[in-house]
Design a protein around this nucleic acid. Structure first.
Length: 466
DNA sequence: TGTTCATGG
DNA sequence: TATCCATGAACA
């Protein structure tokens, strides 16, 4: 039976209460280290800004703006880079000014040969850590615990959001930023942290909507590799060897520069530009033989492309156009048909219903219509699991409890004696009970579990094997 | 208050 | 055709 708005309401109501219990429990913060770390960051920032004062860039900046000169004023920085020093604007913002984000600054830095721009970026990152994360933790902490909120009534897709402080965007990718933040967050004394993430959740949920046989094959066979297959096609590689660092980079490039953007509704023109960044190739009509990543045989990617008839960006653009056509016209043709049908039905009705029973009604763009149901339903898998684990934790009077949630992951504060049992329950709920509960889930779900040592911070998690 | 930047999924 | 969803800080 299809789920109804009543099922959706019940899920929201139960979840609201389960999340409130996690909010009440909270996440332990080492307040002293947060304060010490803030002071250390301030010293670093002051030193960097002091050293920057004598550089060409900042001398010109101060000459123009005098006492109003401000490191955090991107309008000013844009003027100095693009007007004063004449760097070419590679990209503009929504309002038409030259972009000054990290990628834009790196390009400008090369062009006008001003290495001090890297120090500006460094300052920006340190201020983010100090003023957004550490300051937020300290502002919100009560007796050494932060109590992030989880909202269910805000996000247009029926996902959650989190605030005060936001627990869903704490640094993870950058090593230094991860250490500055996650290193001071802990489970209760004598407990350990456990994190359980659904693997490829949005791709799996999309497949439950469109049921494309080729996608179902990718998701159910252990030996197939969608990102690897596209890497081979895009970069003309016969055998992809993931132990080779360049091949591994090319696989990441295909995943993050083509496949995911395509799923969100991007097109080959943007993909070609993005892939060039990954592959270290310029957007020039003719590539030099010295350009591009170094391939396993010692040649460059430019040479490798030339052997396959791609001599520069224009050729590559045409190549990507064909790959996109094959991607949606052949490889995932059923997925494409679902997108067309789903969009058409929305345009007739003005709304659509998700597999989890929610109704999305309003004026939406094409990509939103395609992506909302997937994003929402994926989160609802996590949410249902969250409620179920919480229910079992209370029934069994565990000392372990749920303390947070990040879209496709749940975070627990676990008593070491209960670790085995908690893992068994989490696995059972997420990979068995959930599939029994919702018959629209036609693809098996996988969960990846990480855990820490007793009293170890959130920055130090290890994979659970078994 | 809107824009731009950084962070996460 | 033209990348989905968020929060938060700082500037103008």
């Amino acid at each position: 039976m299809a789920l109804t708005i009543r099922d959706a309401y019940d899920l929201m109501h139960r979840s609201c209460m389960a999340l409130a219990e996690a909010e009440q429990a909270g996440f332990r913060l080492d307040v002293d280290r947060a304060i010490t770390s803030q002071k250390h960051l301030t010293r670093q920032i002051d030193r960097l800004e002091h050293n920057l004062m004598t550089t060409d860039l900042v001398k010109a900046w101060r000459a123009k703006y005098g006492a109003l000169m401000n490191f955090a004023a991107n309008d000013q920085l844009g003027y100095i880079l693009y007007e004063h020093f004449g760097a070419k604007q590679m990209r503009v913002t929504a309002s038409g000014k030259g972009a000054t984000d990290e990628a834009a600054l790196e390009e400008a830095m090369e062009q006008i040969d001003k290495p001090e721009v890297a120090q500006l970026l460094k300052v920006r990152k340190l201020k983010k850590l100090r003023d957004t994360y550490l300051e937020g933790f300290l502002r919100e902490q009560v007796n050494g615990y932060i109590h992030p909120f989880y909202n269910l009534h805000i996000v247009v897709t029926y996902r959650s959001s989190s605030d005060c402080p936001n627990f869903q965007n704490i640094p993870k990718r950058n090593k230094e930023a991860k250490k500055a933040t996650r290193d001071i967050l802990f489970a209760r004394p004598g407990h350990l942290l456990l994190e359980a993430d659904f693997s490829k959740l949005e791709v799996v949920i999309a497949a439950c909507y469109h049921k494309d046989p080729n996608m179902l094959k990718y998701l159910t066979s252990n030996s197939s590799d969608m990102h690897g297959d596209l890497a081979k096609q895009i970069f003309f590689i016969k055998n992809l060897n993931l132990d080779d660092p360049t091949h591994d980079t090319l696989r990441s490039a295909s995943k993050n520069g083509f496949i995911f953007p395509q799923f969100y509704g991007d097109y080959y023109g943007n993909n070609a530009a993005g892939l060039c960044q990954w592959a270290k190739l310029p957007q020039h009509p003719l590539w030099k033989s010295t350009e591009g990543l170094e391939m396993p045989d010692g040649s460059t990617l430019a040479e490798h492309f030339a052997k396959n008839g791609i001599y520069g960006f224009n050729d590559f653009l045409e190549h990507m156009k064909k790959i996109e056509k094959h991607f949606w016209g052949v490889r995932f043709a059923v997925y494409q048909k679902w997108k067309d049908k789903w969009l058409h039905a929305y345009q007739k009705k003005g709304y659509f219903d998700t597999l989890t029973g929610f109704r999305c009604s309003g004026v939406f763009r094409k990509n939103q219509v395609i992506n909302f149901p997937v994003q929402g339903s994926a989160f609802h898998c996590l949410l249902w699991s969250f409620c179920k684990v919480n229910e079992i934790a209370k029934e069994r009077k565990w000392r372990s409890r749920l303390i947070g949630q990040i879209h496709d992951a749940l975070i627990m504060d676990v008593h070491p004696d209960e670790l085995q049992e908690v893992i068994e329950v989490v696995k059972w709920v997420t990979t068995e009970a959930l599939l029994k509960e919702w018959d629209w889930l036609i693809v098996p779900l996988q969960i990846a579990i990480e855990f820490g040592e007793v009293d170890a911070p959130w920055s130090q998690m290890k994979k659970w094997k078994g």
